[in-house]
Design a binder for these strands. Sequence first.
DNA 1: ACTATTAATATATAAAACGTATGAGTCTTT
DNA 2: AAAGACTCATACGTTTTATATATTAATAGT
Lengths: 294, 294
Amino acid sequence: MIEFRHLRYFVAVAEELHFGRAAERLHMAQPPLSQQIRQLEEQLGFQLFHRTKRRVTLTEAGQVFLDHSQDLLQQLERAVESGRQASRGEVGQLAIGFVSSATYNVLPMILHEFRDRFPQVNLTLRELTTDQQVRWLAENRLDVGFIRPPIDDAQLKTQVILQEPLVVALPVHHPLAAQAAISLRSLAGESFILFPRRLAPGLYDQVISLCQSADFSPKVVQEAIQMQTIVSLVAARMGVAIVPISIQHLGRTGVVYRPLQEPTPQAAIALLWHPDKLTPVSQQFLAMVNRLTH
Amino acid sequence: MIEFRHLRYFVAVAEELHFGRAAERLHMAQPPLSQQIRQLEEQLGFQLFHRTKRRVTLTEAGQVFLDHSQDLLQQLERAVESGRQASRGEVGQLAIGFVSSATYNVLPMILHEFRDRFPQVNLTLRELTTDQQVRWLAENRLDVGFIRPPIDDAQLKTQVILQEPLVVALPVHHPLAAQAAISLRSLAGESFILFPRRLAPGLYDQVISLCQSADFSPKVVQEAIQMQTIVSLVAARMGVAIVPISIQHLGRTGVVYRPLQEPTPQAAIALLWHPDKLTPVSQQFLAMVNRLTH
DNA sequence: ACTATTAATATATAAAACGTATGAGTCTTT
DNA sequence: AAAGACTCATACGTTTTATATATTAATAGT
């Protein structure tokens, strides 16, 4: 069997055209070098060198094989280096899920940084609801997710990376829009637009319990699966909504955002992952998110 | 040191994802296989497999390294194959010299056959005089040549591959053109156009001695380095010339060719090479020329 | 809980690569 | 022309390395 050793020896001899010097360069004695070259020639089935007892020259076939051998040795080094990079999470695949509202706060900054640091990593981004991400992660279709906590899957781990205040989204011409800050009580009679509980229980429950704390149950007239839809429905005067403040960045006309008078409740965005399915790439990603958010 | 053995073993395990089956496929026992893989991982500095005592899966880095390993093994095979082809003279370079008159007889057929049989051989063709070819061959600038013998270089070998009759080239309106065959005697008073002796002594001496045998010395009015030039000078009525019959293929108007009445002297074309500097390719070429001309 | 399966470990054996000493042929030098 | 230096090949003993056998540890499935 031909081994890299044979190629290394052959390249040395071919470059020196001298068994003695080549052996020196390889830190070995000359006889075993001659043996190994002979052995290589036997395996190949053709001569690599013209030997004249005193001088060595490459045959045509030897020249051809030399080119290939040098390539092979270089490519071996490259293969090792690529493997090393992959093991450090510097190349590879990363599938990221995120809830729509994450688009407007942490996500852009994190992705920009990550692309900068690991340009060789191929990113796949999917906008998904929190519960979809939980399922996809279990099915190995995602590496990490940005969700609205909490979730109830003991296998998975989450870590809050951002807390943002909730604000009230109102149609521009709504009477309450005149106020700088809005009390919960004043929303008692309003129609509410909410996320379906099934898709984002965290945010949903937070809004409900907020209203409960002001002694009313919100009248839900519409559910919408995307933040953009919710804001559009508010603009269309279908009702009001309580949303994370970063939604302001949408810049939708016809909608204004007002803080609550009450101590500001916070909506969290958390990072989600499966601790048993970490790849080098996702580890690097988690580490970077930690560094950027704490 | 990483050897091809490591790659072969690794690819087997990575493809089977099972040490036992991989060992079977490699015709070896399982423990040494485990050892070799472990050794490879140590050399690489990163893990190739996730091992769970019962199951083996590739790491990210392992997947990357697998791709490269498969490439490397394939390329080794290709390298060996290229070397084999080169050793058989099926790929490579061949520099061929030829005198202009060889263009019209043997050369086209030989080149066509050779290109057909060895399409991977890169041919370089140079039109050169006989003495130029002798020098170029000594300087290693040619592999083989087609010349007008003889030459006086003991190092080189020649072999006559074609004998062709000499004919007289006359201007169309020349009085002798009316005859079907021409006697040497009748050319005694004519002006002759010849190759310079320095460049093609064989042909030159042949023409001179031909005239001597008819008891006259030719009156040389012009020398020309190319057959085409000689024929053009004849057409311009500068004189007559004695040329190899294959020159007819030039089809120059204003010139007619007539055989000699005397027993037809022959002009030879020979193959020229350096027996100590044969490459596999030139050997194949010589063998083919031999086959085609005998 | 038990059995079959799988990879790892320990030890021994076989193979191989390697080094030293030597030889044979060739080129150079005097 | 003879002697010496140089270079690659050969012979043989040593060391290193790869491999096989036997066994263990651990896990998944019944």
